[in-house]
Write a protein that binds this DNA or RNA. Structure first.
Length: 294
DNA sequence: CAAGTGCCTTTATC
DNA sequence: AGATAAAGGCACT
């Protein structure tokens, strides 16, 4: 199937969107991106303004890649200064993805104090151990394991997936989700604050992981996850908005206290408003790309 | 209550 | 080769 995009109304860049580190399971072979979404294989590629895909339908692709988000309006709203304008320009067409909340939740629990290559490895280990096998065009893929599969896994088996200290959190969270004590899909109906309050009840979920789940899977575009890269970026380029005495100390330390997290995300939410999450993703990818090439 | 401190597995990368 | 840093969380002061 194909979708033809009008670049003035629906700018989109598939590579930026899948490579920027918001989602961990897509693989690129030649021109095509391969991914397992909603239990089945999908492959997709972009040629200029044509999006070609198999295994998923139009509605899914539009929803998953948020093609109905008014990106030109969003980027004009968040483009409040020269710095973020250059980030937006560098990765024009980068969009947030509407991930599956359950997979997103476990992915970002695994992302705790971790790096992207290893996050990918851990999630793939989980899928291989506890997911369903799919054969597709000579390659083997696995679905993301269900809450029940992880809840029944047992800590010992789970530990073979090399999750480290996160194994226990994944297991306990899986039990809660499997028991439907917290219904993930329902949280999207709550407002940002109340949805976050629920997420924070889950083991392994603090400020940052909760904001990732809210932004990347529960449609809360005002959520602004603050990780080590974003912390550096904000305190470097928006330092005027913070008390000078505290900035240096915050930059020195590896992890943020709740207070420091709150100070940064309060600023970003006031500065960028309802689409702060988009600003976060552009800044995050920009900061990392600068660091890699430096 | 808020705020600060130290520890938590594992490994890619330098 | 050995240290460092990695899309942080949490228990304890």
């Amino acid at each position: 199937m194909k979708i033809t995009l009008d670049p003035t109304v629906t700018p989109f860049n598939l590579d930026y969107t899948l490579q920027c580190g918001q989602v961990f399971r897509w693989q690129k072979h030649d021109e095509w991106w391969y991914g397992v979404v909603t239990e089945k294989m999908t492959k997709i590629r972009q040629m200029d303004n044509i999006l070609e895909f198999e295994g998923a339908n139009d509605d899914f692709v539009k929803k998953y890649f948020r093609l109905n988000d008014p990106l030109p309006l969003i980027t004009s709203k968040i483009g409040k200064d020269d710095y973020i304008k250059s980030a937006i320009q560098a990765f024009a067409g980068l969009r947030l993805i509407r991930q599956d909340p359950w997979e997103c939740l476990i992915s970002y629990i695994c992302a705790t104090f971790n790096n992207i290559p290893r996050i990918k490895k851990m999630i793939n280990n989980l899928a291989r151990q506890f997911g369903n096998k799919l054969n597709f065009e000579g390659h083997t893929f696995y679905t993301f394991p269900s809450p029940k599969n992880l809840a029944n896994a047992g800590l010992k088996t789970l530990s073979t997936c090399k999750l480290g200290f996160r194994a226990e959190k994944v297991l306990e969270t899986a039990k809660i989700i499997d028991a439907k004590t917290i219904r993930l899909a329902e949280l999207g109906k709550l407002d940002y604050e109340n949805a976050k309050k629920e997420l924070l009840k889950l083991p392994g979920v603090g400020d940052k992981v909760a904001d990732c789940v809210l932004l990347f899977s529960l449609n809360k575009l005002e959520a602004f996850p603050v990780d080590v890269w974003i912390k550096k970026s904000i305190l470097k380029h928006y330092v005027a908005y913070f008390a000078k005495s505290s900035v240096h100390k915050t930059l020195e330390k590896k992890s943020l206290t709740h207070g420091e997290y709150k100070r940064i995300s309060t600023f970003t939410k006031e500065y960028w408003g309802e689409y702060a999450g988009y600003a976060q993703q552009y800044l995050y990818h920009y900061e990392r790309s600068i660091c890699k090439t430096a």
